[in-house]
Amino acid sequence: MNTQNQTTQERRDSAPQGSNDILAARNVTKRFGPHLVLDNVSLSIERGKTTVVIGPSGCGKTVLIKHLIVLLRPTSGEVYFNDSRIDNLSEQDLNEVRTRFGFLFQGGALFDSLSVFENIVFPIRQHNRVKDWSHVEDIVKSKLAMVGLDGFQNYYPANLSGGQRKRVALARAIALNPEVLLYDEPTTGLDPIRSDVINELVLKLQRELGVTTVVVTHDMTSAYKIADRIIMLHNGKIVADGDADHIRNHPHPVVQQFINGQVGEDDLAILRMTGTASQTQFLPRDFEA
């Protein structure tokens, strides 16, 4: 009896999530050389929910979300998908896992030698997801329509605007109808109306297909609208974690400054010190750096 209890306990340790968590990071630390970017971050993502990660620029949001699909490997710590560890798999095995994810890169990362149509077909073709190739055009059309870009099939990424590229990348991320969608700043660079369309799209995918979504964003309007849960990252650590109201009323000053878009006292002090533009002298060594 005792031993049985122990094994259950051990199993719970090795698979830290209940069956309701689809993704989990456990004590993930990431260093680039001496630079500590993620400091012992643990979080689990609930199946079918939308989790939003917010935080100031450079705090490690992109690094964190890349760990969830093991595009980056943790310096220490573990990543779990469906209760099995994935951060130690070979690239070969990971490819299998990754077909169940959609990932939107912050910069879009469209293949610039391929047209919009080919970009979206790429994942479908790689994994032979359609039986009947005559349907492919319809699939691409519907994915593009979702992001409001039907008719752009034959454009090349170079001929699209920044926001349009982002939306094509989003269409590519959802091409395989993945179980988990990871978006790195989906609404950055879009006008407010287009942003809201993307928000609605995120909600729709979650509602209708039960997709689990993780969104990295700076856009608090969007965060409040789509989030079941908001996580704030600061200096490589999670400083707040909860639903929208929890975040709105969070006592931590860093959180309040961030969500209200206020400059902190430290930053203000620096601005005062550097003086006005007319006083500022640009020395040659400023340009070297």
């Binding site: 490819n95 990932f103 890169f105 395989l176």
Partner: peptide, 25 residues
């Protein structure tokens, strides 16, 4: 130049994220 540009614009990572081996592709 081609692969280097693909690398710095994260296109190689994009190939990986889609579940395709970039070395093969």
């Amino acid at each position: 130049a081609e692969l280097g540009t693909m690398n710095v614009t994260e296109q190689i990572d994009a190939v990986r994220s889609i579940g395709t081996d970039p070395i093969w592709y």
